[in-house]
Nucleic acid binder design. Structure first.
Lengths: 228, 228
DNA sequence: TATTACAGTGAACATATGTTCACTGAAAGG
DNA sequence: CCTTTCAGTGAACATATGTTCACTGTAATA
């Protein structure tokens, strides 16, 4: 009856979050299985099947849940897809952050950035697989969401170039246009890299080299650009 | 009863190929329904559903055939997909041919080419929808086939630039690399154009303008490029 | 402590799918 | 003319899918 008791136990549960992993409250548990669903979807994508080939039952099976449980977290597959898009967005943001933190190699800044990117694509390959697959394939809503995310990424990149003092005479609009070009080139390269027969490091080298050169062309053109 | 009668009718059918459409022989008939299957697939893609969402039964239904008839023409859906890729290839070749025939507008050759391209995308929208959708989404075999087709297209384009005398100081390898960049930019633009909410011609204008500017950056960079 | 909210279950449903098989009818060819 | 070939049929199959519903146990709450 004493009102403090329940408060205390609640608090205890809430505070114990340090040991075990990350909480036991009801909402936390729910959030955790939601994440489990998302990660199961990513795992399946990583295991080969494209996003469009994904089925609700497959995902819940992978997550160890009954099919009906899916509806407690997402209205339909597209909603799960949108969560994946968002996850793709944070991955890209992390990429930028990391590139910023590492600082740009003094001489060959382009090749350096590409190396970081290459590592990122390899490490979070499922995410890039998803984006590459759903960018043209998925439902309308998902394609739009991906486009939005790409655009945000391009803006952030333009902002970074600004702060870095690269291409100082270009207008913001032009910078944005150029970063858009860079982004599509990046995503296209990711898709190519992921489809490389593994082992053939020579083919990978060539592909990366081609990628670097394409970016060089873009920045060469950007430096030459005159707004009017 | 008279033996000539059958022969005559056969001959009549065979020779009459001029009127009606294109023949009645057994192989011709088969080829025609094969085409019907391909076009049904394209129609379904045009009507919204992505290539990966296509089903054998859906296609035969659209074509007015029993599901089992499909196997008389393709081993599985992927084989039909490869036929679609090839069709995409000839579409791109036609694009180049048409651009060549029309001749390049003296002053603004880039904007002119983009206009031709825009028209092509609009007219054969289903083909471009398919390519955009299957480029990242479809099965491994199909993605590879599309990549091959893109590469051929890039080569042919490089060849054209050579004959046209554009960028004369670039090596063939460099030219190929640059055309590769142009091709991915083109396909990306196609996918963007096709997703435009129709009616909004202002949005289309901006999108095309952005596309033109991106290509301008690429060619500006190409002109600046020095092989070493 | 008794009540409520609700994440997850398991069974059932209506529908779709790919693939098989023996078949039919008409064109092709000896 | 008689036989062979073969594109297309229609029914059946095993399997998959999305969605529903009444349910159960347990955490939250009052």
């Amino acid at each position: 009856m004493c009102p403090t008791e329940n408060d205390l136990s609640t608090v205890r549960r809430t505070l114990h979050r340090a040991d075990g992993d990350s909480g036991n409250s009801r909402v936390e548990q729910k959030e955790r299985t939601r994440q489990r669903l998302i990660e199961s979807a990513l795992a399946l994508i990583g295991a080969g099947s494209g996003y469009t080939a994904l089925s609700l039952r497959e995902i819940t099976r992978e997550a160890g849940l009954a099919p009906a449980a899916f509806y407690r977290h997402f209205r339909d597959l597209d909603e799960l897809g949108l969560a994946l898009v968002e996850m793709g967005g944070v991955t890209l943001r992390r990429l930028l952050r990391e590139a910023r933190r590492d600082g740009i190699p003094p001489t060959d800044m382009l090749r350096g950035s590409v190396q970081i990117y290459r590592r990122f694509v390899a490490e979070r390959s499922e995410v890039f697989r998803f984006i590459a697959g759903a960018r043209g394939g998925g439902s309308r809503a998902i394609r739009d969401a991906i486009r939005t995310e790409e655009s945000h990424f391009a803006s952030e990149m333009a902002q970074d170039l600004r702060t870095l003092g690269t291409l100082p005479e270009l207008s913001s609009a032009t910078l944005q246009m150029i970063c858009g070009l860079v982004v599509t080139t990046m995503l296209n390269a990711a898709s190519d890299i992921l489809d490389l027969p593994d082992g053939h490091i020579q083919a990978e080298r060539e592909m990366i080299e081609n990628f670097v050169r394409q970016l060089r062309v873009v920045f060469l053109g950007a430096a030459r650009w005159r707004d009017d």
